[in-house]
Design a protein around this nucleic acid. Structure first.
Lengths: 155, 155
DNA sequence: TTGACAAATAAGTATTAATCCTATTTAATA
DNA sequence: TATTAAATAGGATTAATACTTATTTGTCAA
């Protein structure tokens, strides 16, 4: 384990204690798997990945754990289009591009977008906890394959 | 039926023909139910609503029809957090606020947000078909009820 | 107007995601 | 090391979505 990972796990331990959560091997494994992921995996995907090293871990535990992590706000749930729920390890301010063909989600950053002023009738009426620009379309790979095809949301 | 509805249905007919879709009573009913909805209903909700006047209509047909409409881009699928897929009758440029407690989705408009400049590395690489600001938080009603509670994504 | 044909539907079935239930195990604390 | 509440595994359940097939129905051309 390198220094960076150690710091991440230290922080994880702190956060769990702060929220009265026990540090279990399952939770460590789920947290580590998501945090080192470069994607936006579903509970099932994380489970499939973990089962090799941790044969007894159940899907329910993985799913429950991810939801718990989202509740204490150390990870996020990704906005989707009705497909299985997916999770985001990255809690920094960022935005999402969704490929409607291959379902990939690509993060992007933009300093200008952080400065967006919201309408007063929104900020005064509601409590805002998250703000994200969501783009849909076709990634470079898929727009070459099917330039004129409309979104097939079932794929 | 008033003039406005007639115009809407005329346009619906045109769009179906343009995409080689047959005009069926079921499609008319689904389209009308969604377009007159002030919410962002799921397939199940639309089906429950229609079944009173149209007892034989099946949930599968409602769901399939809504997905077809989204494919030809006369309605939209709403970005959600892993709950059942929901649909949006409103294809005008607008943005969404999600209440994490009561699950309500509230539309809002903002002329400034339409002017958002996207980073070049995004617009050059991908084909963008949709752009939306997604806010999460607690609506006026729910933030009064539970001001300090973190998101419970299972509710 | 009618007949032919492709498309759409209903209803039942299958699949998948998500959650619940309960006996057992385990981390935390004294 | 013993106690206790929390967490887990694994099976069962529920709910959403998609598939399959026989039947019905719009559409279009004759």
């Amino acid at each position: 384990m390198n220094d960076k990972q150690e710091i991440i796990l230290d922080r994880f331990t702190q956060l769990c204690k702060a929220h009265g959560l026990k540090i279990t091997p399952q939770r460590m494994a789920v947290y580590n798997a998501l945090k080192t992921s470069k994607e936006h995996p579903s509970a099932d995907k994380i489970h499939k990945q973990l089962v090799c090293d941790f044969p007894s871990i159940s899907l329910d535990t993985v799913n429950r754990t991810l939801i718990t992590f989202a509740r204490i706000q150390i990870i996020d749930v990704v906005e989707g289009q009705g497909e299985p729920r997916r999770f985001d390890p990255n809690r920094e301010d960022h935005h999402h591009f969704y490929c409607l063909s291959c379902n990939k989600i690509i993060d992007f950053h933009d300093p200008d977008l952080g400065q967006i002023q919201l309408p007063k009738e929104i900020t005064c009426t509601f409590t805002i906890t998250g703000k994200r620009l969501c783009l849909t379309g076709y990634c470079d790979h898929c727009s070459h394959q099917a330039p004129a095809r409309a979104a097939d949301i079932t794929k």
